[in-house]
Simulated scan of single mutants.
Amino acid sequence: MAQMETPKIVRCPQCGGDSVYGPSNVYRPFCSERCKNLDLGAWASESFRVPTEAPPDDQVFGDAKLQ
């Protein structure tokens, strides 16, 4: 007989509740469609940002000089 694995339970990144991390949860790592959509909305509205080393558009990058 095949042994069934116990599903891994992780913390939902949106609400902090329990979330099943496995094929049975199509919203993983989120606990629900609602939490998944809230997270997507935060990225779409630019509430979350990835830090960058790029200078602002009005600054010269490196040794390049404006003419």
Rank of each mutant, 00 (worst) to 15 (best):
P29L: 14
T52E: 06
E33L: 12
G41W: 02
T6L: 14
R11M: 08
G62I: 00
S47G: 01
F61D: 08
F61N: 01
S45V: 05
E53K: 08
C12E: 10
G62P: 02
P23Y: 09
V50C: 03
E46Q: 08
C12P: 11
V26Q: 11
P7M: 12
T6A: 13
V20K: 13
D18Y: 09
S32A: 09
M1F: 05
F48Y: 15
S45C: 05
V10G: 07
L40S: 08
K65Q: 01
S32I: 06
M4H: 07
Y21I: 09
I9C: 12
V20A: 09
D58I: 04
C31D: 08
P23I: 14
G16Y: 02
C15R: 11
S47T: 05
E53V: 05
Q3V: 12
W43D: 03
M1K: 08
P7H: 07
Y27P: 10
G41K: 09
R28L: 11
W43M: 07
R11Y: 09
T6S: 13
L38F: 02
G17L: 10
C15K: 07
Y27N: 13
L66H: 04
G16N: 14
M4K: 13
W43R: 10
K36M: 10
M4L: 11
T52A: 07
T52W: 06
A64T: 00
K36P: 03
N37E: 14
D63Y: 00
M1E: 04
R34D: 05
P23K: 15
M4W: 02
R34A: 05
K36I: 00
G17I: 09
G41M: 06
Q14K: 12
N25V: 03
G62A: 01
Q67H: 00
V26W: 06
S24N: 15
G17S: 15
S24A: 14
F48A: 04
C31F: 12
C12M: 12
W43C: 07
V20P: 04
T52H: 11
D63I: 00
A42G: 04
E46A: 01
A64H: 01
R11N: 13
S47N: 07
Q67S: 00
R49C: 02
C12S: 10
W43P: 06
S32L: 07
W43F: 04
E33F: 03
L40K: 13
F61A: 06
V26N: 10
S32M: 11
E33H: 07
G22V: 14
F61S: 03
S19I: 15
G16L: 10
I9K: 09
G17P: 11
R34L: 14
S19N: 12
D58G: 01
G62L: 03
V50L: 05
L40N: 11
A42Y: 03
A54I: 03
S47E: 09
C15T: 07
M4Q: 11
G16W: 12
M1T: 06
A44W: 01
D39M: 04
A64Y: 01
A64R: 01
P56F: 08
P23M: 09
Q59H: 03
S47I: 06
W43L: 01
P29D: 08
A54F: 05
L66K: 12
C31R: 08
S24T: 15
P55E: 05
A42D: 07
M1S: 12
E53Q: 10
P7C: 08
R34N: 03
G62D: 02
R34V: 07
P51F: 04
A54G: 01
P55H: 04
R11F: 01
Q67R: 03
K36D: 04
P23Q: 15
P51Y: 00
G62K: 09
